[in-house]
Simulated assay, not measured.
Amino acid sequence: MRPIHVIFLCGYFRFIPEAIRVVNGPVSVTEGGSANLSCRLTETDEDLEQVTWQKRTRGIPENHNFLVILPPRDVRNINGLGNRARFIGNLTMKTGSIQILNVSLHDEGVYTCIFTVFPSGPHQAETRLTVHGRPVVTVTPAAPLVVGGESGVLATCIAANGRPAAGVSWRTDQLDGPTEIQNNATQNPNGTTTVRSYLLVTPTRSMNGREVQCVVNHTALEHEEIVPYRISLHYVTRGYYGGLIAAIFVLFFTLILLSFYTWKTVLQRRNPRRSRSHQEDVHMQEQQQEEQEEESQEQESQFNPLPQQSQLHPSPHHAGAGL
């Protein structure tokens, strides 16, 4: 009977450590908020010697201690979080809960709570901390569309730096014509996502002045975020086209004149001798013409001589004879 009693006692003492457990759960928090990480030891009356918190993140994937609590309430911050991590538990009640202030995206990861009790030793459990990044929402107008023109991008809604990616949509109830929405997402180096949503329309006169709305949904937002946008379109009249055509014609004619002048100048620079010989030929022709005119004047003077002096003035001899 005594050997059976010993076996029973050994089984009894093995049962107690197996019943000890650490109770916790996953935690989600928005960037900039506070995260409460709960940790509680149950099913034991053993003496608590210390509580240790470890973490591993994307930046540091190995487990490392960052907080140690010793009875009765000696809190020691090590390796990193400093005053952002504080103890909010009660060692008498065997709760080792902590609070992390001003949580950032770098704090996301797995946190391990370790209770060290005597005589059974350490007991631990892991808690996953998820950090949500609130997106920054803006609506950017595209280049103004022209009424009667082709379809194009009317506006772009941007939900930047969200974690996880935000859901973006458009409300276009006030528009009569067809619309199209194109979304794309860009992964940022810090683990956030930027979503761009393009609203495409075929511009009509009835759209001008109407309102569309960008709607963003995200886990970090208590309610969907709505950003309105007032449509502003451009109009083109016939007078505009007429003035445009006239301006194009004037520009074209001016370019032709400039091209002709440039071409002529280039030719003159390339053939200076030819230009000079041409000028000399013109000069010689002018001299020859002047010589011909002088010769013609001399010939005319020979054929039409001036009257002789005897005919114009009678001599005294003849005058006396008459007397």
Rank of each mutant, 00 (worst) to 15 (best):
R230P: 00
V236F: 02
R196Y: 11
M207N: 05
N217I: 00
H218D: 09
R196D: 02
T219M: 04
T237V: 02
V195R: 09
V215L: 04
Y240E: 11
K264N: 11
L251C: 09
G242H: 07
G242S: 12
R238Q: 10
T202Q: 12
M207Q: 13
N208A: 03
G243S: 13
T237R: 05
R230I: 11
Y198T: 03
S206N: 12
V227I: 08
I226E: 07
L200M: 13
I245L: 15
Y229G: 00
I245Q: 06
Y198D: 12
R196K: 15
T254Y: 05
H218Q: 08
F249D: 08
F252Q: 07
A246L: 15
T262D: 02
V250K: 05
G242P: 00
Y198W: 15
R205N: 13
V216G: 00
T202D: 06
H223E: 14
F252R: 12
I245H: 06
G191N: 02
H234A: 10
T204Q: 14
G209H: 12
H223P: 01
L244E: 12
L199T: 08
E222G: 10
Y240L: 07
E222R: 11
T194N: 15
T192V: 09
L244H: 05
V236G: 03
R210Q: 08
T237E: 12
T265S: 10
G209L: 07
R205D: 15
H234N: 13
R230N: 09
G243F: 15
Y240S: 10
L200I: 15
R210N: 03
V201K: 07
V201M: 10
T193Y: 14
H218K: 05
N217L: 03
A247I: 02
K264H: 04
S197G: 06
Y198A: 07
T262Y: 06
A220V: 01
R230G: 01
L244G: 08
S232E: 05
W263E: 08
R205S: 13
V212P: 00
I248Y: 02
L251V: 08
H218E: 05
I256N: 14
R196P: 02
V216M: 03
F249G: 09
T262V: 03
T262G: 04
G209P: 01
F260P: 01
W263P: 00
S259P: 00
G242V: 12
A246H: 08
L257E: 14
A220Y: 02
W263I: 04
V215I: 12
Q213H: 14
F249T: 11
A247T: 10
H234Q: 14
N217S: 11
F253C: 10
L233N: 01
R230D: 03
H234T: 08
Q213Y: 15
A246C: 13
T254F: 09
G209N: 10
R196E: 09
G191V: 01
T193H: 14
S197M: 04
E224L: 06
A246M: 08
I226Y: 02
V201W: 05
